[in-house]
């Protein structure tokens, strides 16, 4: 049996349902496809992984911002001028990597993800394989991403099962003491913020 085929068939079924729903809404005069497109565009315009990169760079350079970020990430976003109004009911939580503990994010039930901070999620994040395996054997899954952790580093897997969305605060790489905030932001990757890369 091909898992890929199974996913493909399911996504085709969902896509057909969405098309039927949009057609019905148009027929009833409730909305138009163009209006929906423009809503989605404006939603995604502000949802970019650069938001996450900038937050991490600020946390690395400003200890009081970092403290606020770990304590109340929504307030920290607001203080950086990141507009979360479209995600008003979402509680953002940022979890910090240390030499003793590495964090990795998953949503085993569906594909919850901090879109406002990281943009749309990568397809592997939504895959059944990642969702099933990262809770069961995170060290092995991270190795497959090219991230081999020292044996003494424990792993915390955050399963975003409900209202909160999670982002990882990676450790600042050694040798970057002289970097400016924008240079630091350029080091950060999307996978680093999910926990499947070191930075």
């Amino acid at each position: 049996m091909s898992v890929h085929m199974h996913d493909h068939e399911r996504s085709a079924a969902v896509s057909n349902r969405v098309k039927s729903l949009v057609a019905r809404l148009e027929r009833e005069g409730i909305t138009t496809e163009a209006e929906l497109d423009s809503l989605v565009d404006s939603f995604l315009l502000s949802a970019r992984p650069e938001n996450g990169y900038a937050i991490v760079a600020r946390a690395w350079t400003d200890p009081s911002f970092k403290a606020q970020l770990l304590d109340d990430a929504n307030a920290a976003m607001a203080s950086m001028g990141i507009d979360l109004s479209q995600w008003a009911s979402v509680t953002l939580r940022v979890v910090e990597n240390t030499p003793e503990n590495h964090n990795v994010i998953v949503c085993t039930l569906c594909s919850c993800y901090p879109i406002a901070l990281l943009g749309p999620s990568p397809s592997w994040y939504k895959s059944l394989e990642y969702r099933a395996r990262v809770v069961r054997e995170p060290r092995k899954v991270l190795e497959e991403f090219g991230l081999t952790l020292p044996p003494q580093t424990l792993i915390t897997v955050w399963d975003s099962t409900a209202e909160a969305r999670y982002m990882v605060l990676p450790m600042r790489p050694a040798g970057t003491e002289d970097y400016a905030e924008d240079e630091l932001a350029a080091l950060v990757t999307r996978n680093g913020l999910i926990g499947t890369a070191p930075v």
């Binding site: 809770v135 069961r136 054997e137 915390t156 897997v157 099962t161």
Partner: peptide, 23 residues
């Protein structure tokens, strides 16, 4: 709603020595 931490070994006995947190 609470964040609850579980020792990973108690959920997956053959798994890693870490923690699983869920809301």
């Amino acid at each position: 709603l609470y964040t609850v931490a579980f020792p990973a070994w108690s959920i997956f006995p053959d798994g890693d020595n870490g923690t699983i947190c869920a809301d």
